[in-house]
Design a protein around this nucleic acid. Structure first.
Lengths: 343, 343
DNA sequence: TTTAGCACTCTGCAACAATGAGTGCTAAAT
DNA sequence: ATTTAGCACTCATTGTTGCAGAGTGCTAAA
């Protein structure tokens, strides 16, 4: 998108974007001239604005309204115009306090992080737990709950626990289950969950094992346990998007909420955000979340002690307070990473 | 609310309520006369309606609109006017299918149940998991995750798993943790979680134990594990309430969503619904959910194999399709109970 | 007791004018 | 060559008015 905008044009564009972010109303030439203490008349600003519209950076809802930034303008804004605020002392304090005292256990921390993101940004907070699949296997355990009902508990080395009720074809005693557990724990020691999964499949083909009834049972059960999906995704502050005037229209809201309801879909889409490091910003139609509505997404990865990555961020309207939210997301990601690493 | 309404008045009230439920529009005298094939003129209906208004069963938004049922009318309606539909073959099939194949594990089943309730009723589905506290203790286990970090895993006899990361004051080896586990498992065998909790507290005062460093550690850790809150509450189909015309107003919606967001609060309020057996119906201000908005709640308990109870139901506008939803809730509760009991 | 008839009340809608914010263009000023 | 003042023009918004329609309440007849 090259375009060599004059410094003045950029300054004016910045003013417009910020004004619009603040007010959610189309902004007119005189407002810019006045508010921004540029020593320029509204007429001059008008000329510049016409140029900017030409370039596809502004649109007007109708002839006699002010102008509104396009997605392209937001893009330009966050890429090169924005002056990013620092995280205030207050915010830092709050983030630290809330993430720290969130209780223990990864899920608790992540949930509280999501809450915190939401309440600091005043938009919606989102946290995607590090994919279980890439965690390092720690421990597996079987419990006989009833006739032919076995509970499999799978623990990863950073404390995520997954459990699954497995129905088996013939009953097994608890003693046998313990033996099975020992066997599997040894076999999968030090592997990641996905490696473990492959290992199990490989092992099932092993002739020697096939004739050992107990062992083949063990493999079959653990295969189910290891296969479990795990879509830990924490979405907090959904109600806040109702505060945004652009979503007061029931229809658009319905759209957004509908999209969020299938977390599965969301998860899939979000995984694409995990690719890059640092703060990622997706504006409007760039967002993987929902093609339709004017939603923006600011995310950053965080890493756990064993190099698995999770995602955290904020979802809000395109007209989002980027300069305020970006540093918050950035800081929170760093903090969470640190928190999860000093074991 | 006594009141000896004539059969005709009741019939008319029923017609009005049902009309209003169907259309969400104030219903007028002629509509009632026409639609309901009563051999009555609109004038007669008008007289009756005036009486009903007198009794506080109807209100009119303004002079020349039709009339709208009050909460009192809904109450009367569900108590004595309603003719409850049967659950259709189709619905039954769907409920059974979805709850059955929901995958295994209590949480999965409950979540899917909530989804099913939502999609069948077209309102919001809610399921509150049986209180962990009253479950029978099954197994406790400790895993050393890092220096002074221990993961406690607590399993109840019907397969709910709770885990908690506990930070301890001095490091313990995995071997010692296993020994602790054995000790505790024996001690709490057959108790409910809440009994177990008391037992632990009692044991901590035991002199002999106090001098055994390991055992007192064990008790301290397990106390934390047993204390964990567990607010499993599954709320599905929130977006559906956006479809209701009475909530198209952004403000009211914000109210409702706000209320749902603190599940803690919700849980507390809902626990009061657990008291009684059978289908419970709360209309408007009777609901424990949210005093303000016109929301109704239909719930029923379900029981697990060890007599712990959970709650399940539907949240919708006061103007809810009671005759359709009530049997669905009833049937689902029975089915889930049966499903959880044939172990 | 029921109903027909009628006056009355109120909303909703459409047409219309007035308002005013904001633009685009032109011509003067710098 | 810019910048700016001035002015005509556009168009959403607001308020007015008038009218049609839905619904009521009351009265008097069936």
């Amino acid at each position: 998108m090259d375009m060599e905008l004059s410094p003045r044009s950029r300054q004016i564009l910045e003013a417009i974007v910020e004004d619009y972010i603040a007010t959610a109303e189309p902004v007119g030439s005189s407002a810019v001239a006045r508010r921004h203490a540029l020593t320029l008349s509204s007429a001059t600003v008008r000329n510049v604005m016409a140029d900017l519209e030409e370039l596809g950076l502004l649109t007007s809802p109708h002839t006699s309204a002010g102008r509104v930034p396009t997605e392209k303008a937001y893009r330009l804004y966050v890429d090169s115009l924005i002056t990013i605020r620092q995280v205030t002392r207050e915010e830092k304090k709050q983030i630290i306090r809330r993430c720290r005292q969130a209780g223990s256990g990864l899920p608790d921390i992540l949930k509280e992080t999501s809450r915190t993101l939401s309440s600091l940004s005043n938009y919606m907070g989102i946290v995607v737990a590090p994919s279980f699949i890439s965690h390092v296997f720690r421990h597996i355990e079987f419990l006989r709950l009833g006739v032919r009902k076995v509970l499999a508990i799978l623990v990863s080395s950073n404390g995520l626990v997954q459990n699954r009720l497995v129905e088996i074809s013939e009953d097994i005693t608890q003693d046998d289950l313990i033996r099975m557990g020992n066997y599997l724990n040894e076999m999968m020691h030090g592997l990641t969950i996905s490696q473990a999964r492959e290992r199990i499949l490989a092992e099932m083909k092993n002739e020697k094992v096939q004739y050992d009834r107990l062992m083949s049972q063990a493999l079959r059960i653990s295969q189910q346990a290891v296969n479990m999906e795990h879509d830990e995704i924490f979405l907090e502050g959904q109600a806040r998007i109702l505060d945004q005037p652009e979503f007061s229209n029931a229809h658009r809201m319905r759209e957004i909420f509908g999209a969020f309801e299938q977390k599965g879909l969301l998860l899939q889409l979000l995984s694409s955000c995990m690719a890059a490091e640092g703060v990622q910003i997706y504006i409007g139609s760039e967002t993987p979340v929902s093609k339709t509505a004017g939603v923006s997404l600011i995310t950053s990865r965080f890493v756990t002690s064993n190099n698995t990555v999770g995602l955290l961020g904020v979802i809000g309207p395109t007209r989002m307070g980027y300069s305020r939210v970006i540093p918050i997301v950035d800081y929170t990601a760093r903090l969470v990473s640190r928190l999860l690493n000093d074991t």
